[in-house]
Design a protein around this nucleic acid. Structure first.
Lengths: 225, 225, 225, 225
DNA sequence: CATGAATGAGGCTTCATTCAT
DNA sequence: AATGAATGAAGCCTCATTCAT
């Protein structure tokens, strides 16, 4: 395992893979202490961001949750902003990868509307059940100061493209004739899914029920019988 | 210690009516100057909140936009929080009233799905075209500190009830059989509409196109052919 | 007296005149409280800068000396840097004005070497006896971060020009033939004078003795018999 | 608690000789690696101090320039302050030794004014051309916190004594009659020389020109011709 | 009514320093 | 002999808030 030069301060997406490695029980053998700590910080930041939002996220909270002092954060990230961007980037990348994987696993001949349904379920479950990173990304996308948006939006555009194709392929007949309408449709659907983070809590309804409703809504909206 | 003569500081929703009054050409004679100023502050705050989000909203920005000094804000509102709550309450109340009015204007025998469609259009246009207050309310609902949510959520619950009835009435046949699913459906639809504030800009598509897509999506989702 | 708009945060040289006004016993009548406080801050900063140097100057020290809280400094200056620049600019401007005044008061026909001598004495006494501002400017000219030097150096260049003329006029015969040498001579003399702030203390020798030595040195260096 | 095997941490002036040894091609066999590294650190610190000043000098800069990690510096120096003091002492000692050597090389019967001239040239060239150590010492003499000055000032007093004798011997006749004036004269001259570090850059004038001006100024100031 | 002035609390960041390896 | 990791102290700065006028 190659030693990184010195202070590991740089923005790199922390992939879901790396994160999972950390969450599993694999002994540290392959990881430097520093990787571990960096991950702990990112995890803590993702959680706080998902709960408190961009402006409410304080380094003190992140440090407390990571069981470190504030100044230690600066050993790994050059600034609060860099840390936030790293989380959001990770979050955006994670859903995308997760959904891409789900789609890749499908049989080749599957109907477009079914592909879209798979994406809906994958996205929704990831946001609600799995990743604070993605919840953070979803909730804070619009709350970030101008100069931080560029990077995050680029990643999100990538995901958006995938979805647009899913929607375009699934649209039947002559509904939603214009590209603008189909773009709107895609964003309305993703909005419906993303907005769940604002209202869903495990106590009132199961994820399954939400997924079920979302799937019906989408299938019908796209013209399935 | 009675300091301020008649401190007009009280949280009351500023209704759309009041607001419109202010925007119209009614001679000032009808209004105390203080009403005027209070309204200017609220308008400014609504705008800033809709753009910057809860945490990004600074009194300095509001004061600048209202062409006042910061300390003046305290003549009208006891605290930043009170001002914010006033805006969000106003925003929530405004859409509700607006949508209620639109529904009230309908012929009695109209089909439930059509009533829902009217609500969709009314809501969407209000958020996107008309009211910074409502945009502020929509975007910041989830970003507020715990102790401020109560009031705002109460108003929103009221609106939610109206919508739930619209959805329940419009659902056809045996789809969405459980109340939980129908609740999820309502929130998915409202989420789709509310999320538009995160992505819609006049430059890429007209409101009409978004409305059109939203109407189709809703009608189909609810089972209309 | 025209009211300044609002927060008086802007860099303007505080002229010796303004400062003297503040130091004298003239009742505040003509001055806003704000002018007074701004002056107190500048005075405090000048003192601290002259004693501690650029890097050693802490806002806490300045605030303490001005009998204010740190945050109050920000009501008058946008940043530590702006305050420092204001002091150095003031300091540079002060000596220049003081020396210009001394020169202006001379009889027209006076010999160039005598004009130079007047400048030497004026400069030296101002730095050692009168102005912390100028001492601050002298001691910190070279210690400032790159991006702050521009403004200060411009003012200093202005003073440098005056001195160069004094030196050029006073140089007799064929010594120091090249402009570069005369420039060096000017800077050596000013250096000798400025460096006094590093070693002079009232306890070891009187200002008069230093002035006397400096005058002799200069007169002889320039070729007077 | 004996931690470090042979912690070479001790304040000793690194003489010009030692430094030259390091710069020359003598095979490393003669030097412990640690000497080598210690020297690298000192050199780096001298450079940074000469450029940034006491307060602007960061261990990070020194480490970067020495191509080491910050923590390594602590293997050789107990603290930042100790390192700084070592540099300044070295710098002060270097000029003194250099000038002493130049004076020692003179013929015995040489005139006092010529001895002084030799010292002027030696000092000036050393500061401007040769040693960052001395430049550091010169520029930071007055910027150091109280508790660090003692050692440095002691060394500088030693050099001052030599200069005072040079000046006293060179003064002719009845000028500068009092010891205080002669002390002032010495410090004015040294000030003129030292201040050159604040303004001289190779691009505007050659060292020779500055030296020439300084020599003429000194000779004349002392009454030669 | 409105504001100028002042402040306290709290956040971000830098940096020298320590220590186990 | 050198370094990676972690930290405490201290500084700068922002911002909501107060209060006399």
């Amino acid at each position: 395992m190659p030693k990184k030069p010195t202070p590991p301060t740089k923005i790199e997406q922390t992939t879901a893979a790396g994160r999972d490695a950390m969450l599993s029980d694999v002994p540290d053998g392959e990881l430097r202490k520093s990787d571990n700590t960096r991950m702990r910080i990112l995890n803590a930041a993702a959680y706080v961001l998902s709960q408190e939002g961009y402006a409410g996220t304080k380094l003190a909270d992140i440090a407390r949750r990571a069981d470190l002092r504030i100044s230690t954060l600066y050993y790994y990230f050059a600034s609060r902003e860099e840390l936030v961007v790293a989380v959001l980037l990770t979050g955006s990348t994670q859903v995308r990868k997760h959904t891409e994987a789900a789609l890749a696993a499908l049989a080749p001949g599957i109907a477009p509307i079914d592909r879209l349904a798979v994406a809906v379920e994958s996205h929704l479950r990831y946001v609600l059940e799995i990743s604070h990173y993605t919840e953070a990304a979803v909730r804070n996308a619009g709350q970030m100061p101008e100069h931080l948006r560029a990077e995050v939006e680029k990643e999100q555009a990538r995901y958006g493209k995938i979805w647009q194709k899913l929607v375009d392929d699934a649209v039947m007949g002559k509904d939603y004739p214009s590209p603008n309408e189909r773009r709107a449709l895609r964003l309305l659907i993703l909005g419906a899914l993303n907005w769940t983070v604002e209202w869903w809590t495990p106590s009132r309804a199961s994820v399954d029920e939400v997924v079920s409703a979302a799937l019906k809504m989408t299938r019908r909206a796209l013209g399935a019988r």
